[in-house]
Amino acid sequence: MYRKPNKKNWTGRDDMLIDGELGARWHQKVERINLEEVDKLPRLLGTSKGFTILGFCSDEGVRRNQGRVGAVEGPVQMRVHLSNLPWHFGNNTILVDGGDVFCLAKFLEEAQNFLGEKVFKILYSGYKSILIGGGHEIAWGHYLGVKKFLQTQYSRKLGIINFDAHFDMRENPQKQSTSGTSFLQIAQDRKASNEEFSYFVLGVQKVSNTPKLFQTAHDWGVEYITSEKMDFMFIQDIYKQLSAFIEKQDFLYVSVCLDVFSASYAPGVSALNGLGIYPTIVTDLIRFIAQTGKVLAFDIAELSPKHDTDDRTARLASNLVFTYIDACVNETTQR
């Protein structure tokens, strides 16, 4: 159920021989830590910022949700493209690969609980969690870890921001977790704990959600911006809505489902999108959100390498992770 990080996943070009530190890339900076020995996470001192990448190798939730499987291989392929990214974060940033949690056979719920335990240890050590998937069932497991961490905090208002073509608030008759149920599970858990459910979806599509799903979102007070409004001509309105949402939160959990993008940018996903949005507005908004300093947890879901073309989706996913870390490291006041 847990696989420690593999050095073979981190290889790439070596420009440091000529350019020194200015030529560094991620594979030369990442530290590989066995999260079964969490006390080995490097201590964060002073203004240091730490990020731990953790893979979730699962597409059992996609299978249950009747999607096309293949996302189980997403974490390995994403590291291929993370490895060769240039290092722009100086010596005050610590990047850790914490390995992978994987789903054995059909034991998804057990894998999600195990994922939550690993996320809690990451957050409790002062690091931000970056999860790479894997189906969007990653969100329930990620939330479980965030929830446990928030129980150690005095203020714990949590806002959830999801870039997604879907609400992922589907009811499951078998009461099982799927890639389409995570945020309804979170809503129900927040209600059971007398905690507010604050959920904002960007890029949701009418063509991808039934009237029942829109009704469910309405009943739970979900805020959303539809895909046709996810355009730079509306950017000031988007900033305004996001700012109002973020201002009410102590912490943020941000999730990106790669099926929010047009198929021309992200063909390697579990549910192909013919009318998706452009990557540039998402990178802009990730930067906008991360620079508030409130993001604890970030994940990328639904990378399905066997359906990808020229690794377009994997490259896009790695660029989103880069954007997020860059914004956190170069944190400024919100616009």
Rank of each mutant, 00 (worst) to 15 (best):
I160K: 02
F261P: 08
E195D: 11
D168C: 14
A111R: 00
Q249I: 07
S83W: 06
Y278G: 15
Q66I: 03
C57Y: 07
D259T: 04
D237K: 15
A301T: 13
L41E: 00
G55M: 02
L17A: 12
T313N: 06
R3Y: 10
G23L: 02
L131F: 04
I325W: 02
G46H: 11
D237L: 13
L150C: 09
W26F: 11
G145I: 01
T332V: 14
T226A: 13
S155T: 14
F167I: 11
I33C: 02
H218M: 15
P211K: 03
F232W: 06
S243T: 14
I289G: 01
R3A: 12
T93I: 06
S155H: 10
N6Q: 15
E31T: 10
Y253F: 09
S48M: 12
P211T: 02
L95E: 02
T280V: 11
D284G: 14
L202V: 14
K49I: 13
K7R: 11
R335K: 15
V254S: 03
D97N: 04
E36N: 13
T323M: 12
I53K: 02
S270Y: 03
S243N: 12
E137C: 05
I138M: 10
I238H: 10
L242S: 08
I235F: 08
I238A: 10
V72F: 13
L296Y: 04
K147F: 12
I132K: 03
G20P: 00
A244I: 13
M16S: 14
N113R: 11
D299L: 01
Q241A: 13
C57Q: 10
Y2N: 02
L54I: 02
G20D: 01
A71T: 05
S193A: 15
T332A: 11
N84K: 11
L316P: 05
P5D: 01
H88R: 14
A266S: 09
I289P: 01
K229P: 07
G61D: 04
L213W: 06
D168G: 11
I18P: 07
D231Y: 05
F89K: 00
I246Y: 03
I225L: 12
K40F: 08
W26P: 02
E171A: 11
T47I: 14
T152M: 06
N209G: 01
R335N: 13
Y127F: 09
A271D: 01
K229Y: 13
L202W: 09
E109I: 06
G135W: 00
Q205K: 10
R64L: 03
S198M: 11
Q334C: 13
A297Q: 07
R25H: 07
A24V: 03
W220Y: 13
P5R: 00
L150S: 07
F183N: 07
V62P: 00
W140G: 02
I238N: 08
D310C: 14
N330F: 04
Y143I: 04
F298K: 01
I235G: 06
